[in-house]
């Protein structure tokens, strides 16, 4: 009853036999062993499972693995390149955009997609762009800040504050 699927995940091709009912998120976590994509609801509300399919942000709990057949999937594990964090990852770190970190992979993927679509979003555009993601820890304040800061970094602009923060995690910086 299984079906063959061939996906390119984070640049690597995989061939598997899966049950038609297997959700993409379970495929990624349990078949491909990529546990960075999380599950926090069963009603497509939380966005913790967000990945990119052919470059577009998708809630991987709302897609069957077989529907992703032949597509390119990017998960949180594939966002950093050659040991360099993606600017959105870097910004979440610098701006304290995460606490428990459970919602974070989904937020980072959704934010990366948002910035690709809209390189310098307003507060309102960020709020709209990330309305499919829930965080219970941060009150969203620093997530909003992180997205702005990533936008600045990606557009090449650096402000003094964020430049100061880059580098050693241990470097104390004035509050």
């Amino acid at each position: 009853m299984t079906q063959p699927v061939a996906l390119t995940i984070n640049g690597r091709r995989r061939d598997d036999q899966v049950e038609p009912r297997l959700l993409l998120v379970h495929y990624l976590r349990e078949v491909a062993g990529l546990t960075g994509t999380h599950i926090a609801c069963d009603t497509s509300q939380c966005g913790a499972c967000t990945v990119l399919i052919d470059g577009e942000a998708v809630k991987s709990c709302s897609v069957f693995a077989v529907q992703a057949n032949g597509r390119k999937v990017t998960t949180i594990e594939g966002l950093a390149e050659n040991g360099t964090l993606h600017p959105v990852q870097q910004a979440f770190w610098e701006e304290h955009g995460l606490q428990c970190g459970f919602c974070t992979p989904g937020f980072i993927m959704a934010a990366a997609y948002l910035l690709q679509q809209n390189p310098s979003p307003t507060d309102e555009e960020i709020e709209r762009g990330l309305e499919g993601n829930l965080c219970r820890c941060t009150g969203y304040e620093n997530i909003r800040r992180a997205v702005h800061s990533a936008a600045r970094a990606m557009s090449g602009a650096t402000d003094a504050a964020s430049a100061q923060l880059v580098g050693s995690a241990a470097a104390p910086v004035e509050d």
Binding site: L34, T35, G36, T37, T75, I76, E77, L79, A80, L85, Q89, F92, W93, L98, G101, F102, T104, P105, I108, A169
Partner: peptide
């Protein structure tokens, strides 16, 4: 954070 933002929590 490094592990959490890269999916290695």
């Amino acid at each position: 954070d490094p592990k959490l933002i890269t999916g290695h929590g």
